Structure formats: structure tokens, C-alpha cells
Amino acid sequence: MSGMLTDKVVAVTGAGRGVGREIALLCAREGAALVVNDLGTSGEGEGADLSPAEETVNDIRAAGGRAVVNGASVADPKGAASIIEDAVRNFGRIDAVVNNAGILRDRIWHKLSHEDWAAVIDVHLNGCFNVSKAATPYFREQGSGSFIHFTSTSGLIGNFGQANYSAAKLGIVGLSQSIALDMARAGVRSNCIAPFAWSRMTASIPATTPEEIARVERMKTMSADKIAPLVAFLASDASKEVTNQIFGVRKNEIFLFSKPRPIRSMQKGEGWTPQAIAEELLPAFLPSFARPDERSGDVFGYDPI
């Protein structure tokens, strides 16, 4: 290993299993000290079990690394603050925050309850806010720091039965963008990653049609460890010029996503009427419309290498 994170302290949420665990293991191998946070809930956010986080920490220590367990909920502001406090208390500083923790409560829109909406927003969007907010005073004081937030193509592009998750994940992009702009003068950067990886969460994706079954089979070839190198890079000083970006990782591919920008414009000197919009603007804009039924699987329908 190159030791790109030597003397760095990294906090990873949801690091007991899957993508988060692989991130923690690689960051440790690259020289970082880790706060391994995981409440240890079910995929829908129920229950608690510290053993996954403890296993990750034990594996890091067995390999000669440094790590501590944190079992707080990122949805609780005090719990989120304890993640950063554990980093500073045990290792003296905090250099990078990886907001990876998440749950799923997939429901078709007309069956989505307020409880399912709030639970997913709390963990994903509010969790990112809570942990990032807690780290911010330390980042500002030391004049450096890296926020790495996990978004999803479910938010960037769209998916069925995930209104809560999609809204949270696109909200994280907006949050990251604002953090990057507000914190740039303090030397702090903020970026997003949309991961493609087979994990406990993606294993819950329903597959009833041949196309959906094929998509799931493709996902099974995308191991969680493929996400970790980009995270380690973004946590390192080598990424000091990288901020306010949205990346994707799909097996051995790394993507850079565009942000929403105007793609067509039409001006009418005397102003618009509803009828003029229907008769003039709509025919001009229609060829540039995004497909109304497009979702992540349509954009990334080919087999990964």
C-alpha cells in the first residue's frame, strides 16, 4: 500500500458491513486511524447490534491498524457528534468524514407512509447533515478536511418505489454542493459518490421481470471493495483540488456526473400564454425532454467490465 492516508483520521458511518466496511479496511491499510460507526440495524433501520462494527475494528487491529467502535445513530445529532468526538478523543483530530450509513424502506408511492418517509430521510439526509455539522468546527480550525457523501443514481436518475430514498439521495447532492461552496475558503472540500455494489441494501431490490432479474445479476458482479479506492483518494491530500463533484463507481469504472444545467431556451418578446406554450414551446422542447420512464437501470444497462 502507498500509505496515502498516513497520520489521517477518518470516520466512516455504516462501516460494519458492505461498502462501509470495505472503505474502513482500505483506509486503515493506507495508514489512517478509523472511527468505525455502525448502529447495526436491519436493512429497514430496526434493532441494534454492535457486533458488525466490532468485527471491522478487530480486523483492522489484527492487521496492525488503529480503530475504535462507535455505535451511535447518525439520525441523532448527539449520536452523530459522538462519532467526531471519538475521533478527536482517541486520535487527536479528524481529517475525513465518510457519510455512508443508510437504510431502505422501499414502497410504491401510493403506499409510502409518513413513517417510512421520515425514517429514510432521517438516516440519509439528516444523518449526513448531523455528522458533517459536528466535524465542521474541527475542519475550519485546522484549515483542511474532506466530506465524502454517498448519493445514488436512484436520486440522480430515478427508480421505482424509492421516493423517500431518491429524495434523500438527491438532497445529499444539494447539501454537499452548499458545503463545498461555503467551506472552500476554509480549505475544506465536499464530494459525492454514487456506488454500484452488491450489498445487503441492494439485495433487497425487487426483481420480477426479466429485465429486473438481469439487472440484479449484473449487480451481483459488483463487489463492495471496488468503491473504497475512490473514497481513500478523496480522503487524502492528493484530492486537495477536488471538490463539489459527483462521482460514480461501477465495478472497474469511475464516472463523473454532470449537474443540472439549462439545455434549451426559447424567448418570446411579448411574453408567453398557455396556448403559445402548447403550440410553440412544447414542439421545440419535446426532442430534448428526458424520458419520463427512465431510471438508473436504463442508463446503466450494459454489463460492467
Rank of each mutant, 00 (worst) to 15 (best):
V19D: 00
R107V: 08
N90Q: 09
G18T: 14
N99E: 05
W109F: 15
K240G: 08
L26T: 11
A11S: 09
L281E: 06
A186E: 10
G174W: 00
D225V: 15
Q275D: 15
G248H: 09
S223H: 13
Y165N: 01
D49T: 01
L286E: 14
E279A: 13
C27Y: 03
A48T: 00
P52F: 04
S113F: 07
V57S: 07
V98I: 13
D59C: 12
H114L: 15
G271S: 09
F233D: 03
T13V: 07
R61Y: 02
R185K: 15
I148F: 03
K240C: 10
P137C: 06
V173T: 05
T243W: 06
G171K: 01
E241V: 13
W117Q: 05
E55D: 15
T41P: 14
G158S: 07
D95H: 13
M266C: 06
T273N: 11
A135Y: 13
E54S: 11
D182T: 09
V123A: 05
V131Q: 03
R66C: 12
A135K: 14
P52H: 07
F196R: 01
V242R: 12
E22S: 11
T151D: 02
E280P: 08
I157R: 05
E217T: 00
G174C: 06
A118W: 00
R200P: 01
A67E: 01
K133W: 09
L104K: 06
G71E: 07
A72N: 08
S152V: 07
D86Y: 10
A207H: 14
I121N: 01
V88M: 04
I94E: 08
H124N: 04
R61F: 05
M4A: 10
K8Y: 02
A228M: 08
G102Q: 08
